[in-house]
């Protein structure tokens, strides 16, 4: 991995840097493994043992994020793209997090969902 990064740095600015077909197949296998993992986690949770909801969500989201990172870096060539493209790709996710965190901050502080009944 480190060596690959080194060669990429070496080729920076070179138009002919590209990702080999072998890498695509390896990434695809990794994606399939992750997909099986996430479905397996769901099956285990449903049939074998009870996992608390937050943990299940964390597992599923971690796997989804891992898949996204693989697709973005390799299939979408962000790994070998210009620095600006990388910034934009990352920026989109940062802004999503800004939207989620600030809005949920309000909901958590406000008490959500609203409880019916007289005020305490």
């Amino acid at each position: 991995m480190a060596e690959q990064q080194h060669t990429n740095a070496h080729h920076h600015g070179d138009r002919h840097t590209h990702i080999s077909r072998g890498t695509y197949y390896r990434v695809f296998v990794a994606l399939m493994v992750l997909m099986v993992l996430t479905v397996a986690a769901w099956w285990v949770e449903k049939n074998l043992l009870h996992i608390p909801g937050w943990l299940a969500v964390t597992i599923a989201m971690s796997i989804a994020i891992a898949k996204t990172v693989l697709i973005v870096l390799y299939f979408m060539h962000v790994k070998i793209s210009s620095r600006m493209t990388q910034v934009y790709a990352a920026g989109a996710f940062v802004w999503l997090i800004i939207l989620f965190v600030i809005t949920m901050g309000d909901y958590v502080a406000r008490g959500w969902p609203p409880q019916p009944g007289p005020l305490p």
């Binding site: 802004w95 800004i98 600030i102 901050g105 309000d106 909901y107 502080a109 406000r110 008490g111």
Partner: peptide, 21 residues
């Protein structure tokens, strides 16, 4: 500019803590 939108919602039953920030 992306971090301040809640100042349009000070009186809209948004949390007071969010309003403060």
């Amino acid at each position: 500019g992306f971090l301040v939108w809640g100042h349009h919602m000070f009186v809209s039953s948004q949390s007071v803590y969010a309003g403060l920030i």
